[in-house]
Computed example of a mutant assay.
Amino acid sequence: MEAGFYWFAVPAVLFAGISKGGFGSGAAFAASAILALVVDPGTALGVMLPMLMLMDVAALRPYWRRWRWRDARVLIAGSVPGVALGALLWRVADEDLIRLLIGLVALFFVAWQLARMRGLVRIRQVEAPGWLGLLAGLAAGFTSFVSHAGGPPVAVYLLAQGATKTAYQATTVLVFWAVNLLKVVPYALLGIFTAQTLAANLVLVPVALAGVWIGVRAHRLVPETLFFAITYALLSLTGAKLVWEALT
């Protein structure tokens, strides 16, 4: 990788680690969107998957057994066909289509979160049926495969179940730990992992671990509104640019 790549990769991976460690791991996919601005989408996803897996392992310990196991089990089961659908799409899609999908998912993520904050979208706390968890898992598996962005479907399901802040965080960490494991073999078979992505991973390991460490502590100290305001601004800019590049 050229030196200029790391000017984007270091802050992106640090941000992803902070998100994984303390603010709902779904926002960590912003790192993939940022990297897709400077390298092709496959390279961006190939660099980030091992980093996200490392963050998952680092974040599991502080939230150990604090997750909602019933909900996690249903979401993980649903993610299996979602990952398979993502792999099938990858085989036939070109780089611009993947870039477009990453950009659109980023913009949708921001729009959904803002609509929820303003009360335009209300999530009722009810005991959701199992099939709804499977559907949320399928959507999460698919969007996670093509953009590492499975957060919104999982968030909708967990919030509807009335998960507390810590239980929500712990469950998302567990779910995406499993989903990311499911993606390893198809990523390898599709050639998404390369010598270049491996070399970048070796450089970025300490950055990823530092991000998780900061996130676990910031979970109790930093207002979520500040963190997510920065997240939404980054995703809006990167999402719009990726869509523009894909269409032009």
Rank of each mutant, 00 (worst) to 15 (best):
A30T: 15
A31D: 02
A31N: 05
S32D: 09
S32M: 12
A33V: 01
A33K: 01
A33E: 00
A33L: 06
I34S: 09
L35R: 12
L35E: 07
L35W: 12
A36G: 10
V38N: 07
V39P: 05
V39D: 07
P41T: 06
P41C: 02
P41S: 01
G42S: 12
A44G: 04
L45F: 03
L45V: 07
L45H: 05
G46E: 07
V47E: 00
V47W: 04
M48A: 11
M48T: 13
L49M: 10
L49P: 11
P50Q: 09
M51V: 15
M51S: 14
M53C: 13
L54Y: 08
L54T: 14
M55T: 11
M55N: 06
D56Y: 06
D56F: 03
D56L: 04
V57K: 03
A59R: 01
A59D: 06
L60N: 03
R61K: 15
R61S: 15
P62C: 09
P62M: 10
P62Q: 10
P62N: 10
W64K: 11
W64Q: 12
R65W: 13
W67K: 00
W67Q: 14
R68T: 03
W69Y: 08
W69A: 14
R70V: 11
R70L: 11
R70T: 11
R70S: 12
R70F: 08
D71R: 00
A72M: 00
A72H: 00
R73A: 14
V74C: 00
V74S: 12
V74E: 13
I76V: 15
A77W: 09
A77P: 00
G78Q: 08
G78K: 09
S79F: 01
S79N: 03
P81D: 05
P81F: 04
G82I: 07
G82Q: 06
V83Q: 04
A84F: 14
L85Q: 00
G86R: 10
G86Y: 10
G86A: 10
A87Q: 11
A87I: 05
L88D: 00
L88K: 01
L89F: 12
L89H: 04
W90C: 06
V92F: 11
V92R: 10
V92W: 13
A93H: 11
A93T: 10
A93K: 10
D94K: 12
D94Q: 13
D94T: 07
E95R: 14
D96G: 04
D96S: 15
L97I: 14
I98L: 15
R99V: 02
R99C: 02
R99D: 01
R99K: 12
R99T: 05
L100H: 02
L100R: 09
L101Q: 05
L101W: 05
L101Y: 05
I102M: 15
I102E: 07
G103P: 02
